[in-house]
Design a protein around this nucleic acid. Structure first.
Lengths: 136, 136
DNA sequence: TATCTACTTTATAATTATTCTAAACTATAA
DNA sequence: TTATAGTTTAGAATAATTATAAAGTAGATA
């Protein structure tokens, strides 16, 4: 019950009404000890597999967008024509395996930059992501 | 004429028949002194604007894919659901402006990494790309 | 040079991912 | 308790890409 209240507070804190659907989706996304990557397609399967509860695909799209805007999720940079999301919102880096097309996390402190360019004037650096492309 | 022969040789060297369409597309992409980013949509407009020559959209898709596989183009990592390509195939880095959603190149030697993780066993590092996200 | 064949182009249909629409539903403020 | 603004939903619409299959062509070979 405590985790449910945590979710409700989290949602309220971002001006999102804690609806049944948002709470259920938040549970699937944030009640793990591990962060993970997903697409709307895989999230939809995870939620709607056991015939009991049904959340419409449009709601899943809406919710993922709302959670991303609220900063609960991060969109991943890829070269695919489909959106990938990461429940790990901390700055971190990725390996991208060109063979298997898999993306795995690299801990932030495993990469260090010793030189970084100045941002264009009027802009600030928000964060810095390194993608290491792998081949066999 | 020489640049046309260069293109023809380049194509032949990758086992691609130098068809009229491929040569024309290659000219639009590689006969500049500057590299640039594009999508199939923008490339299609550039090619088919002046009513004279027409290349079908399917051919543009096929050709961009063939050129990418041949290593003449590089797909850009983004968080959009559309493919972006770069005529700059050298390892380099990008600024990504979250406001304007624009992607601009950073010269390779403007970024230096002092620590990089070991690749998973059986894999080699092919290259390393840094994306610097900007905000106002 | 003529002919054959595998590769290529093309228009169009099909598919996939996402967004839009508008009606029904619901959290919450008054 | 009620009003209302926010939310969900099924289904339609759109956008990007891929598939299909017929017509065209580059290049090898006779």
């Amino acid at each position: 019950m405590n985790q449910k209240n945590n979710i409700i507070n989290k949602l309220r804190g971002s001006g999102l009404r804690p609806t049944k659907q948002r709470i259920l989706i938040a549970k699937k996304l944030f009640d793990k000890n591990k962060t993970f990557h997903f697409t709307v397609e895989t999230l939809n399967k995870k939620i709607n597999k056991n015939g009991s509860e049904k959340i419409s695909l449009a709601t899943i799209y809406n919710t993922v967008e709302a959670f991303t805007n609220a900063g609960y999720l991060k969109e991943i940079l890829t070269s695919k024509n489909k959106s990938y999301y990461d429940t790990n919102i901390k700055s971190h880096h990725h390996f991208y395996d060109e063979g298997t097309k898999e993306l795995t996390d690299i801990n932030y402190n495993q990469v260090k930059l010793s030189k970084v360019p100045n941002p264009p004037k009027g802009k600030k650096i928000k964060n810095l992501e390194v993608v290491i492309r792998l081949q066999n």
